[in-house]
Design a binder for these strands. Structure first.
Lengths: 226, 226
DNA sequence: CATTCTATTGGAACGTCGTTCCATTTATGT
DNA sequence: ACATAAATGGAACGACGTTCCAATAGAATG
């Protein structure tokens, strides 16, 4: 890769970081994480791997950049919300929907700690936590609770999609298979897990996700009242 | 790979699933996720890749099995706790410490959704949530909040360790580098993140982690009182 | 004890990946 | 028009997960 210089492209059909990222997102959406290879990318862009490396340092950075393109879109959506709580809920749902539409974002996020995509989310949520009146010394832990919960659900959704794809079945069939295997566990050793198997079938991911957010929000409120 | 039959080994130095998993854990601890290859494993066990495949179906399953060995140890530790809350705190800290000692477990966990290692954690936490008096229909979301938070922190710790290793620096130096890059962000667009940069240096991961657990626990309590 | 059979072994080989290298092409500045 | 530098694209490298298969070693059989 090299430093950037020129402002206007030298050729009409020239390569650019943005075109590469755009193509990467398309491949990731269409073929999942494993589908993104420099060879697939070369073919789609009608070029060779070497040309791509002129614009992008390595695959990890490319994945992070593709992830950031999605996150930036999700976090720049206009926020209509009366209270900080309402805005946090909207932000969280925005993340959920973004990862639901682009499952690879879930795992890409966890591989880029402290980098741009994560910082975007941290900032948006942090401001609302601050607006909530959480004292300075508790803000990190509070934002961390929300952020890590969102990341945890996202990573889980990503993994479900990935495993399902590998076995050639869709997400709900995969969850069904998990529910079946849970219901065959030892009744004594895994009583709780067995009781959850029923709930796992046909539950609403999104509802359960936002219920978790509400739980944390009410924890924040409870702590604030002490 | 093949089906299991024999009970006693045919040779003294014979291969076995357990010996392979044990060696995998050693390699993962010593060289991180990328260090675990069938070639490295072959060398350590003084055999060839083909022999390993007789006992293990593929790399993914091997990683999950290695992960499960760590999780099983952590979740079978004796639990002394007066209240369900205290037990949940102990379990969560056990997970934190296990991932801190074996960072690769953090990312291995997210790649095995609904499988044995996750189920172990789900069961242990679920029982305490149940003991807490959370109504049946809220148990899934409640356990999910705790579990996903733990997973999120774990994945984050794993990623920090992995990125640090790649750059040849240790964890605290890596966090320091992140803090530096945060403090150079635009003051208007990233005011909150900048204010967190200071906290990031020299904070106690473990304390912040348990503070998040307490936040969720108090949210559970608050919801229960409604 | 000799022989057969089958579970296991270990190393060679295949296809794919990320990445590097480099000869070639294209636009710019003189 | 020519020299220079930016940008391209395809060949090649080393490492990986996995498959294949000829060789072994203990168990079972006679």
């Amino acid at each position: 890769m090299a430093k950037k210089t020129r402002s206007s492209p030298r050729r009409e059909d020239s390569l650019s970081r943005d075109r590469i990222i755009e193509a990467s997102v398309a491949i990731l959406d269409g073929s999942g994480e494993d589908g993104l290879t420099f060879r697939a990318l070369s073919e789609r862009l009608a070029t060779g791997p070497g040309a791509i490396y002129w614009h992008v340092p390595n695959k990890g950075d490319l994945l992070t950049a593709a992830c950031d393109a999605i996150i930036a879109r999700a976090m720049n959506a206009p926020l209509v919300g009366a209270t900080p709580q309402a805005i946090i809920r909207t932000l969280a749902l925005g993340m959920f929907d973004a990862i639901d539409a682009h499952p690879w974002v879930g795992s890409a996020l966890t591989r880029a700690p402290g980098q741009l995509p994560m910082v975007r989310i941290l900032e948006r949520i942090g401001r609302q936590v601050s607006a909530l009146g959480v004292p300075d010394e508790e803000q990190w832990a509070t934002v961390g609770a929300l952020l890590n919960y969102i990341l945890g659900v996202g990573a889980q959704n990503a993994a479900n999609g990935q495993l399902g794809r590998m076995r050639g079945i869709d997400r709900s069939d995969f969850l069904d298979a998990v529910a079946t295997s849970w219901s065959q566990l030892d009744p004594n050793a895994y009583a709780f897990t067995r009781s959850m198997a029923a709930h796992l079938r046909g539950h609403d991911d999104r509802n359960d996700f936002i219920a978790g957010i509400d739980l944390i929000l009410s924890g924040i409120e409870a702590s604030r009242r002490l």
